[in-house]
Amino acid sequence: MTDRDDVPVEPANNPAGAGAAPALDPATEYRPPRNQWWDVWDQFKTHKGALVGAAVFILIVVAVFLGPYLWTIDPTYIDIRAKNQGPSLAHPLGTDQLGRDTLSRMLSGGRVSIAVGLTAMLLSIGIGTLIGVIAGYFRRLDGPLMRLTDLFLALPILPLLLVAVLLFRDMLSAAFGPEGGVFVLIVSLIGITSWMQTARIVRGDVLALKEREFVLAGRSIGTPSRRMITRHILPNVLSPIMVSATLGIATAIITESALSFLGFGFPPDFPTWGRLLFDSVDRMQLYPERVIWPGLAISLTVLSVNYIGDGLRDALDPRIRGR
């Protein structure tokens, strides 16, 4: 049985191995069973924008999370004699009005922005999937949950976010410290106000899945609802969830930056990209490059994430895949 043991392992080691098997036995056209994620990856590879986007996003994430270990200047260190410097070897992106190094501020700002984006996305996907699956699976809860979703969709998000940040900032700062409090606040606010699209898409997919035979078969052998959902429903709605997850990162980063830009985000000595942009707008006549860097970082991150989402949507759609 060595032959059978080899087969599932081989494509994992060698993604291009699918072409090798027909060469051995062209008459039967035998193709070893292949994990579907390899098909997804093959399709994803054909989307150039998505590939470049993924590379750029990974680069930004790595730079932002490992960069501070290589570029060790403290972003809050004030060197007032070296204020407002242009680019130099000591400060590749120059310094700000208090002599803080712009590069290290960009790196630690990016760390916060991306952390906010990822955590808020996880929260919003979590809530959205939960509500979508429950609404789609249990008919009795469908009506109320979808009305709730409609109500949330009708809320004016940005004004409410501004108000809520102002209201709860002090409360949470006392509980988690000034930075931690604002982080928790912004992440949970973005998460709570951005789950609706995911919930709607997931609900639609679950409703369609519920009519399929495998669900009927599963139910007929007495599978409890909880296991039906975790074993059979959830894996099948993974693709729309993944697409809205990538797009969710983009929205979360933009929302956080918008809040910081309006002055309702993180405290001033705690840089994020939005905050850096907000701080440099006052001096943009003299030092326009300080506006460009954080803005470029935000735009590039969001652009790459959007491209990844585009590519994923194509790659995860079985009707497009393989064309």
């Binding site: 933009i254 930056s257 918008a258 942009l277 803005g295 735009s299 969001v302 652009l303 585009d310």
Partner: peptide, 13 residues
Amino acid sequence: MVGFSVPPFFSGV
């Protein structure tokens, strides 16, 4: 795609 991704607070500035 770029117009979609660049936030107005950056394009404006």
